[in-house]
Every structure is written in structure tokens, then in C-alpha cells.
């Protein structure tokens, strides 16, 4: 188990080095990219579409950064087995380590971007919601379980179906607009709500935003993602068992 984390750490360092070595801005790139997007969204949705939300910048980033963790993990998951094939080709190892790499590496990127959120919160009039931080492990574990299951399924299936990656990319783009990232959930009309809430990211994004920004965490939002994650976890177990264990011959 300890070795599992050591290997993840070294893989993460590898990915960081590969991404940022030789670039002048280095680490700043990992924050700059989402920030530039956030600025564009800010202009488009606050000043042009005029979404009625106070402290829109904080509101946006506290939804956008967790979303980027989840969406990047899903997108990278489709090529996961290819990116980390050396691990499977060198030694007998549980294939779940591949989705684990994907999810944790994107999580660390997310952690790196959090200081930006806190700086923004500090400069705005909202108080930093320290009291809610005790829920961090809970919400983190929930998201981790959800992501590990979905990324495992996606990674295994894209070994068999090579165009799944494109499909996931499309789906992720759609879900971005179908999740309360750039707008608050109360803007969704009642007639659409029942369908809208099928998307598990709706609850997850809200939970992260409550944790990082508003501070009043509605734990009942965690129920649906949790149940769904448990179901997906079972599915992912079979995917890893049937396809993941034989990944080397599919790569």
C-alpha cells in the first residue's frame, strides 16, 4: 500500500516535469489556463448575460476548479492505460492503479489551484468558511470514490472501443453547461429540475462550492452521488477484472 503511494508520487512528479520543465512560467501554467478561462466566463456571464450572483468571481472559481479536476480526470482516463502502460508491462500489478494515478494527479493540480481561490476570497468581502472545512475529507472521499469508479470504467471500455475518448470529450463538454458552474442552481426552471438532477455533477459541484465558499454544507446533497458511486464502483470492479487485468494485450 505504501508502495502504491510512492509510485503515484513519482508518477505525479514525472507528469509535472514533463508538463512544465523548460517552460518559463512553470507551475503558473497550471493555474493560468483555468484563470484565463474564468476571466472569459466572468465577462461573458457576469457583464453580458448578467447572472444575478454576488461575488461572481469567487462563485465561478469555486465551481470551476473542482469541475476541472473531475472533467480532466474523465478525459485523461480514456487514455489512462496508454499513458501509464509501462507500469503494467513491467510487473504484476493491480490495474486499479492506473485510474488511481489519473484521479490523484488531477487532484493535486486542483490543490495547487486552491490558493488562487483563497486569495480571491480574502480580497472579496466574504469570510473564509473555516467552520465547514471539517467536511473536506468527507466530500473529498465522495468525489474520489465517484471519480475512481467512473474513470476505471471509462479507461477499461476505451481499451475495447477506441472512439470512446471522443464521446467522453463531448459528454464532458455538455455536462459543463448542464452543471451549476457558471450559474446558480436556482436559475434552473422547475420543469427541468427532475431531469437536471440526474447529473451527479450537479450535487458534487454544489457541495464543493459550499465547502470552499458559502460554508453551509447541505449534506443531503451527498446522498445521490454516493448511491450512484456505489453502483458504479461495482460496475468498475467487473470492468477492471475482465478488461483491466488483460490491459496489456489490448494496448
Amino acid at each position: 500500500m505504501r508502495h502504491f503511494f510512492e509510485l503515484t508520487f513519482l508518477m505525479m512528479r514525472r507528469d509535472m516535469i514533463v508538463r512544465y520543465r523548460g517552460t518559463i512560467l512553470g507551475y503558473i501554467w497550471s493555474v493560468l489556463n483555468p484563470l484565463v478561462f474564468a476571466m472569459v466566463y466572468f465577462v461573458a456571464f457576469k457583464h453580458i448575460l448578467r447572472i444575478p450572483v454576488e461575488n461572481y468571481a469567487v462563485f465561478l472559481l469555486t465551481g470551476l476548479f473542482p469541475w476541472l479536476w473531475m472533467s480532466n480526470a474523465l478525459n485523461n482516463g480514456t487514455k489512462g492505460f496508454e499513458t501509464y502502460q509501462a507500469v503494467l508491462k513491467s510487473r504484476v500489478v493491480n490495474p486499479v492503479i492506473i485510474p488511481f494515478f489519473v484521479v490523484i494527479i488531477e487532484f493535486v493540480n486542483f490543490l495547487f489551484s486552491l490558493p488562487v481561490v483563497f486569495v480571491l476570497v480574502a480580497f472579496s468581502s466574504v469570510p473564509i468558511p473555516f467552520s465547514g472545512f471539517i467536511y473536506f475529507p468527507l466530500i473529498f472521499l465522495l468525489t474520489l470514490l465517484f471519480l475512481l469508479s467512473t474513470v476505471s470504467i471509462v479507461a477499461c471500455l476505451s481499451l475495447v472501443f477506441r472512439d470512446l475518448g471522443h464521446l467522453i470529450q463531448l459528454l464532458v463538454q455538455m455536462l459543463f453547461f448542464l452543471s451549476p458552474i457558471i450559474y446558480p442552481v436556482d436559475l434552473v426552471p422547475d420543469s427541468l429540475k427532475s431531469i437536471y438532477h440526474v447529473n451527479p455533477f450537479v450535487d458534487l459541484i454544489q457541495l464543493w462550492r459550499q465547502l470552499l465558499y458559502t460554508g453551509d454544507i447541505q449534506l443531503e446533497l451527498a446522498v445521490y452521488p454516493f448511491i450512484l458511486s456505489c453502483v458504479l464502483c461495482v460496475v468498475s470492479y467487473f470492468c477492471l477484472k475482465i478488461i483491466g487485468n488483460r490491459a496489456v494485450q489490448w494496448i
Binding site: R2, H3, E6, L7, L10, A86, V87, S90, R91
Partner: peptide
């Protein structure tokens, strides 16, 4: 080495 199962 880590991939081969050796601790850091």
C-alpha cells in the same frame, strides 16, 4: 525502480 516495485 519504483515501477519495478522497489521502495523510494
Amino acid at each position: 525502480l519504483s515501477i519495478l516495485g522497489i521502495s523510494i
